[in-house]
Design a binder for these strands. Structure first.
Length: 831
RNA sequence: GCCGGGGUGGUGAAACUGGCAAACACAGCGGACUCAAAAUCCGCCGCCCUCAAAGGCCUGCGGGUUCGACUCCCGCCCCCGGCACCA
């Protein structure tokens, strides 16, 4: 047997054994508590990167630990297999997206297996398979029937490089989330999911997800962006009809001196038709609409506007106020019209100053210190002035009363607005799930019939170099019969956003081969919800919001009985090297294959778990990897060089009769069990869990040396065995291959990964003596070892009599003595 | 601007409920083993003063509460992330 741990052979040996015995296959077992551990599934981009290694190492420790704790653990893996890179690779290299994708899957599956993750591979799925997206199409149809999926023409985010529409969530600072190109507005027809119907519920449940990081919940709350206020009708001054605005500051309405519409507002042409303003206004509106929306709505963009020449009546002051249009008003938010109160809104203030509109104060601050002309808008709440019958009221009270009065006389109502937009899911690309809709000249828009699902994505397409869906070119796909009347009809050629697939894959894992529905109800009710979900924070308002929405839709469609998909969420930090995220362009990537070849999977796993707590960024450091490898070898060597003792039979031994040294060492063994268990249970602090095991290994070496002639032979052997066995059990989730090998070398035939997690013996944790820290006026002056049962008076006496303490008391009087049993004593003095 | 998270040795980090700041590692320095190297083992390793002992200082900055503060409170500075002309 080699002295050095030959990881290559040993890891391969155990991976093969796990594969052959289907070691991690699970089925529903009502007799056991279940635990669903899930890591975000990867996009099959070609090869895994260190972010994956970290993600899957964390997940695997959780799964293996929970298994040892007696849970029936579901730990699946699959592939988020649709998406643009496959298509781009196809165009570049002339290989079909399906071929490219499945080749990548095969390679990456091999990589994951080399990491030794405990997946139930029988549940593997790829979202590009018709057996998978068939159910997505079925749900689309149900959503369509309920009005939750609808088609509209609108201005959308268009990525000119990907040649497709992007959802709001997929635009980051004006750029495409995938290729980083600048996004432009484009007027197109497309399909949307009505996520706004669920805005209120998605927001409300943010308060009921205690297992989620506050950061992610905040991001979701911000993204949903609820604001409460009122809608108010402003009657048109010179013609019938009215304009409706949304405001959160109804209390300031007496100061509304003009109104501003979005340039695209449908009433703009009517208001100016036939007037001298018409031409100028139309020109302005057209110019603004063409501008890119991101830049137009940037906070520092210049405010531009133009008067329409038309007027409305302020329903509270009865004054005529002019209607303007301006670039900063968005048609999509609220009603596309705002009442402008320049004295109490900075944006309105700037606009009013620029165009010389009046700025009357209608809210005073606490010391009535506001005077016209203002230097800036006063946006705080205060007390109303110049506001008719509401003068003198505090802002909050005024809002309440004014809303009530408004509702009573029918000029408006309380209203809530959300920033959240409906989810645009149409993609003008090939490699995605076809939208199961048919256009019939006589029946119109018709959903595909259930018995004709799935609408299979055809393979024999000619991909377009310049983008755009090639499905439109394929007559055999486009031409079909109407599901309703049987007449000639054409298929929708858009495909679905890939985020639709990832919105429900966690459900499919419960019964991945179920052929009569999306998920087998019994399997879903046993396994769902996901107990621990692990992935990158970059999905905080993308995938994690969509998956919550989709879960609620499926609940309302009766597919599952579940409000939220993920009970606990862990967002792991990025992997950093030399101060930057690993990326090819920065040249700071570490290749997992190379790492595993050089050090083995256990070392790779151990380092990525040891170097930082999982939620923090991980600073990659090649020397740190060496350290992790050294530690594993240290454990390996200990077992090799003490085999005869470790294999000898257990002597009969009473724990109570141990020598003092033996007792102390046994205490440390059990202390370690407690620490490792607590660290894992408390937010998965694997870094400190591992350091606790390292300490025990250090202590074991020391004990092995020092106990030789001070501890009886049998006792010594017993404790060394106990410590070694405990170390293997505690390390099993972190370094599964090496520990499994050592476990079997020690003569065990049951696999280590199915052993019960060790429990700390409470009796062993009780200390017989402890270290008394002696402070004088809060400064440490001495340390004494005292017996566990010592009383407070004795502690005081010992402390005051201590030689190191005495000099500090000589010139001073003892004021009082604070005793903290088990810790310290503090002697407080005065002169 | 608003919201969230941070700031501790040369580095990654640790510190339970307010109780020895820096566990565990990495790097560094010195030593043992070796013909030599690798591997391994032992020792030192926050700053100042000092031959040393003893002492003083130290958790972004300034205050406060407390016998005692990395931890609690008030004010400020800086970094990271999210949202942002949202009416």
């Amino acid at each position: 047997m080699s002295d050095r741990y030959l990881f290559t052979e040993i890891e391969a040996k155990w991976q093969a054994a796990w594969e052959q015995t289907r070691a991690f296959k699970v089925t529903e077992d009502p007799g056991k508590p279940k635990y669903y551990c899930l890591e975000m599934f990867p996009y099959p981009s070609g090869r895994i990167h260190m972010g994956h290694v970290r993600n899957y190492a964390i997940g695997d420790v959780v799964a293996r630990y929970k298994t040892m704790r007696g849970y029936n653990v579901l730990h699946p893996m699959g592939w988020d297999a649709f998406g643009l890179p496959a298509e781009n690779a196809a165009i570049e290299h002339g290989v079909h997206p399906a071929v490219w994708t499945f080749e990548n899957i095969d390679y990456m599956r091999g990589q994951l297996k080399k990491l030794g993750c405990s997946y139930d591979w029988d549940r593997e799925l790829a979202t590009c398979e018709p057996e998978y997206y068939k159910w997505e199409q079925l749900i689309f149809i149900k959503m369509f029937e309920r009005g939750l999926a609808y088609k509209k023409r609108s201005s959308v985010n268009w990525c000119p490089s990907c040649q497709t529409v992007l959802a709001n969530e997929q635009v980051e600072a004006g750029r495409c989330w995938r290729c980083d190109s600048e996004v432009i507005p484009k007027e197109v027809e497309g399909w949307f999911f009505k996520i706004t119907d669920y805005a209120e519920e998605l927001l409300a449940w943010c308060d009921r997800l205690p297992g989620w990081p506050e950061k992610v919940l905040t991001m979701q709350r911000n993204w949903i962006g609820r604001s409460e206020g009122a809608e108010v009708d402003f009657p048109l001054a010179d013609q019938p009809g009215s304009l409706r605005v949304f405001t959160t500051r109804l209390d300031t309405i007496y100061g509304a001196t003009f109104m501003v519409l979005a340039p695209e507002h449908p009433l703009v042409p009517e208001l100016t038709r036939g007037t001298k303003h018409a031409a100028e206004v139309t020109q302005f509106a057209e110019r603004i609409s063409r501008q890119d929306k991101i830049r137009r709505t940037a906070a520092d963009a210049t405010k531009e506007g133009i008067s329409t020449g038309a007027y409305v009546v302020n329903p509270f002051t009865r004054e005529r106020i002019p209607i303007w249009i301006a670039n900063f008003v968005l048609l999509e938010y609220g009603t596309g019209a705002v009442m402008s109160v320049p004295a109490h809104d900075q944006r309105d203030f700037e606009f009013a100053r620029q165009y010389r509109l009046p700025i009357p104060i209608v809210v005073q601050n606490a010391d009535r210190g506001l005077r016209e002309p203002l230097a800036a808008a006063y946006e705080e709440d205060g007390w109303l002035v110049n506001s008719g019958p509401y003068t003198g009221l505090p802002s909050a009270e005024a809002r309440r009363r004014m809303t009530e009065d408004l509702e009573q006389r029918g000029g408006g109502k309380r209203a809530v607005n959300y920033r959240l937009r409906d989810w645009g899911i149409s993609r003008q690309r090939y490699w995605g799930a076809p939208i199961p809709i048919v256009y019939c000249s006589s029946c119109g828009i018709v959903p595909e019939r259930e018995d004709r699902l799935p609408v299979v994505l055809p393979k024999d397409v000619q991909l377009r170099v310049k983008g755009g869906s090639p499905l439109a070119d394929l007559a055999t796909f486009v031409n079909t019969s109407c599901p309703r009347c049987g007449g000639q009809a054409k298929r929708e050629t858009d495909t679905m956003d890939t985020f639709v697939e990832s919105s429900w894959y966690f459900l499919r894992y419960c019964s991945p081969r179920y052929s009569t529905g999306m998920v087998e109800p019994r399997a879903a009710s046993y396994w769902m919800a996901v107990d621990q979900y692990i992935g990158g924070v970059e999905h905080a308002v993308l995938h994690l919001l969509y998956a919550r929405f989709y879960t609620k839709v499926l609940r309302d469609l009766g597919v599952i009985a579940l409000d939220e998909p993920f009970v606990n969420l862990l967002t792991q930090g990025m992997v950093i090297k030399d101060g930057a995220k690993m990326s090819k362009s920065k040249g700071n990537v570490v290749d997992p294959d190379e790492l595993i070849r050089k050090y083995g999977a256990d070392t790779a796993r151990l380092f990525s778990l040891f170097a930082a707590p999982p939620e923090k960024d991980l600073d990659w450091n090649d020397q740190g990897v060496e350290g992790a490898s050294r530690f594993l070898n240290r454990v390996w060597r200990f077992v090799q060089s003490n085999r005869s003792e470790l294999l000898a039979s257990d002597p009969a031994l009473r724990v109570k009769e141990l020598s003092p040294e033996g007792k102390a060492f046994r205490g440390q063994i059990h202390q370690t069990i407690k620490r490792v268990t607590d660290d894992i249970e408390d937010e998965f602090h694997f870094n400190t869990a591992i350091s606790a095991v390292m300490e025990l290994v250090n202590a074991l070496y020391a004990f092995e040396q020092s106990s030789m002639d001070r501890v009886p032979q049998g006792e010594r052997r017993f404790l060394i065995k106990d410590a070694a066995k405990t170390i293997l059990l505690l390390m099993a989730p972190f370094a599964p291959h090496m520990t499994e090998e050592l476990w079997s070398q020690l003569g065990h035939t049951d696999p280590l990964h199915r052993q019960p997690w060790p429990a700390a013996d409470p009796a062993a944790l009780v200390k017989e003596e402890w270290l008394l820290v002696v402070q004088v006026d809060g400064r440490v002056r001495s340390r004494l070892t005292v017996e566990a049962g010592i009383g407070e008076e004795e502690i005081k006496a010992l402390a005051l009599a201590d030689q190191k303490v005495q000099p500090w008391l000589s010139a001073r009087q003892v004021d009082r003595v604070v005793v903290v049993p088990g810790r310290l004593v503090n002697i407080v003095t005065r002169s």
